[in-house]
Amino acid sequence: MSIKLILDPILDHLTGNTREMEVEGATIGECLNAAVSRFPSARPGFFQPGGELIDYLNVLLNGKSAFPDELNKKVKDGDEIRIVLIVGGG
């Protein structure tokens, strides 16, 4: 099973400038953990110390918000997960 994971541009410094990757997992949480296995430095960019998703990240599953309970949302082969940073101002 292959899921496409696309990171917000602001996060790619945590993954050696890799913005898109194929990952495996049955839920969004498993897919993010798969990315962390490949890029351990991405962990603090995704998760709070207790393992919850960082407050100011939004997760889109096939273009739609996965909120609430994002990490437990089921995914299937061919899905696209996009991680978006919430930010304002300038």
Partner: peptide, 21 residues
Amino acid sequence: PFYNMFRQEGSLFLIKRYHEL
């Protein structure tokens, strides 16, 4: 986790960010 990125890019990171949004 964004310290190095912000030090490197400053608020210019928003160009890419806001275009995507």
